[in-house]
Write a protein that binds this DNA or RNA. Sequence first.
RNA 1: GCCGUCGUAGCUCAGUCGGUUAGAGCGCUAGAUUGUGGAUCUAGAGGUCCCCUGUUCAAUUCAGGGCGACGGUACCA
Length: 500
Amino acid sequence: MSKKQKTFRPKARLPRGLHDEKAFEVVAQRQMLEQIRQVYELYGFEPLETSALEYADVLGKFLPDQDRPNEGVFSFQDDDDQWLSLRYDLTAPLARYVAQNYDGLAKPFRRYQVGPVWRNEKPGPGRYRQFIQFDADTVAAPGMSADAELCAMLSDAMEALGIPRGSYEVRVNNRKILDGVFEQIGIALDDPDTNNQRLTALRAIDKLDRLGVNGVRALLGKGRKDESGDFTKGAELSEDQIEKVMSFVSVTAEARLDVCNALDDIVAGNETGKSGVTELREIDALLTAGGYGSDQIRFDPSIVRGLEYYTGPVYEVELTFETTDEGGEVSRFGSVGSGGRYDGLVERFKGVRIPATGCSIGVSRLFAALQALGKVDDQALRGPVVVLVMDQARVSEYQKMVQELRQAGIRSELYLGGSGMKAQMKYADKRQAPIVVIEGEDELANDTVTLKDLALGAKLSGEISDNKEWRESQATQVSVPRSDLVSRAQSMLDDDEVGE
RNA sequence: GCCGUCGUAGCUCAGUCGGUUAGAGCGCUAGAUUGUGGAUCUAGAGGUCCCCUGUUCAAUUCAGGGCGACGGUACCA
């Protein structure tokens, strides 16, 4: 066909599961992160930033190998052949940092960290291959007060973000209780023969909210076939074993102490389980003393977390309100944060058991939820004051105006394009500029400038339908002495803010 | 990974039972408007109909494969 030589043009595209953040999202999310940060700092956590890359073996169980070089993590080989990986969470790097700097740290060591993490897996609704986590951890604090305050802090963070009480819940459980139940039914923690069964059971319970009691029962037993026809192998527990697990998981009560009392019966005679309930009681006492009621923080035995490494309290922050999307589909946001105690994590490096407990907020999902709740300030992105270029010969004068505005702390810019006035106005509109500064022939002759309030104009435009009236409406602009440029612009901006 | 739906303009989507110039709305550009965004009217630009292979005189349309998006499920440190 065509004999034209083809120039290679890469297709402008982004790898799947990643996305660009536009100015509006960046600004709004920054506000949100700042609110969380203030809560974390108020609790005394100090910031730490570790690098995005770590040696693969530092990150843990997924070591790249021939068969599955990138299972779950993004990895590549350095020029000395060592495997590097992008971090997939902020906890593993923390463990590395603590192990590496242990002697110099004030202990307990309490740090927060926010940043992107990467996971090389199939993206889904609300799931990306790069997303932001906001973590706080306390290392080398064995007592329950460290755990209790993280639950309290998550609660505080939700409320700081404007999520009303009753629209979120921190749900707390203790892994030791489940461990006790597992002991009772003969699949104890230290038994390598039942390791897979135990993990499968763990994941099954974790799905209770989504699959319901029957779904979980199926997964604890033979397995489950879902609507799409996919079969999931179960934990192969016996009826009696399933019964025991379900009786534990099904415990519900409003008051935290009622939950504890009910759990006492279930773990009767098992030391591991009993110590778990005791820890819950300690947490309850601490939370109650702090004024946190069960409308904020509840005990919920169905919260187990799918991960193996938790050794004590585990918890999730759940958003409980529902939203209706464009298609009329009702959806719940579910978990936006989680945490727990993992006394074994630093042990990998030091060989010494160092207690640690921490929590993590899934920022991207939480952000989406806040948008649905209308808690995201859509005024967040406001453009600069734009000084129009009416006459190229006078650019230096316009630049001087910009300079004055900037010196007064007013975000402003000279129009830097090459188009005419109309296009400049469009530009200013698109940038969501609050004000446009115009100095044309008329103004120059009178030593004035015209300030046009774009935001006000937009508001008024809805009420005008007649073309003539439209053209003539000049209520949104004022002519002021050149020397008053800064002060009048400032008061216009102030009015806008009040007017919102 | 498995199952399913889908891929046409910048966006949302129509359409072609295989046949000449593939459409709409929104957006974009320009004009109506002697210096003015956002309302209104008019005009214009913009398409490898996802890619490859096959069937056919002829493929955007049919078939196979690939890639991608979406949804469910599994995994999720």
